[in-house]
Simulated assay, not measured.
Amino acid sequence: MKSLVHPAVIIASVLGILGLVWFALQFSVTIEIEPEPSPVGTIPATRSPTPTPTTPAQSAAPTPMAGTTPGSLRMSNQTDQPVRVALLAKRSPNAYSENPAHWDFTPYEGSTGGLILSLPEGNLTLNKGDIIVAFAQDGSGRYWGPYVVGETPTPVWNSQTQEWQLTLK
Rank of each mutant, 00 (worst) to 15 (best):
M1Q: 09
M1K: 06
V5S: 14
H6E: 14
P7D: 09
P7V: 08
V9I: 15
I11L: 15
I11H: 08
L15W: 15
L15T: 14
G16S: 13
G16N: 12
G16I: 06
L18D: 11
G19Y: 06
V21W: 10
F23K: 01
F23L: 01
F23D: 09
A24W: 02
L25N: 15
Q26Y: 00
Q26H: 02
F27T: 13
F27P: 01
V29F: 02
I31Q: 06
E32H: 09
I33P: 10
E34I: 00
E36W: 00
P37Q: 00
P39Y: 09
V40L: 00
G41T: 08
G41N: 03
I43G: 13
I43A: 10
P44G: 10
T46S: 15
T46P: 06
T46G: 13
P49A: 08
P49N: 15
T50C: 03
T50N: 09
P51N: 13
T54Y: 12
A57I: 05
Q58I: 07
Q58D: 15
Q58C: 09
Q58P: 12
S59I: 11
S59M: 05
S59F: 11
T63W: 04
A66I: 14
G67C: 07
G67A: 01
G67Y: 12
T69Y: 05
G71T: 01
S72F: 04
S72D: 13
L73P: 03
R74H: 13
M75I: 01
M75D: 03
S76A: 15
Q78R: 15
T79Y: 06
V85K: 07
L87I: 13
A89V: 06
A89D: 12
P93M: 02
Y96P: 12
Y96V: 03
E98M: 08
N99Y: 01
N99L: 05
A101Y: 10
W103C: 14
F105P: 07
F105C: 08
F105K: 01
T106F: 04
Y108K: 05
G110E: 01
G110Q: 03
S111C: 05
T112W: 07
T112I: 00
G113K: 02
L115G: 00
L115H: 03
I116Y: 11
I116F: 03
L117D: 12
S118F: 00
N123F: 00
L124Y: 08
T125W: 06
L126K: 01
N127D: 09
G129F: 10
D130S: 04
I132L: 14
I132D: 11
V133S: 14
A134V: 10
F135H: 14
F135G: 07
A136C: 07
Q137N: 15
R142T: 06
Y147S: 02
Y147K: 04
V148L: 00
V148R: 04
V148D: 01
V148M: 00
G150E: 05
G150L: 05
G150N: 02
G150K: 00
G150H: 02
E151F: 05
T152V: 02
T152S: 06
T154P: 03
N158E: 14
Q160V: 09
E163W: 05
E163G: 10
Q165F: 06
Q165R: 15
T167D: 14
T167H: 12
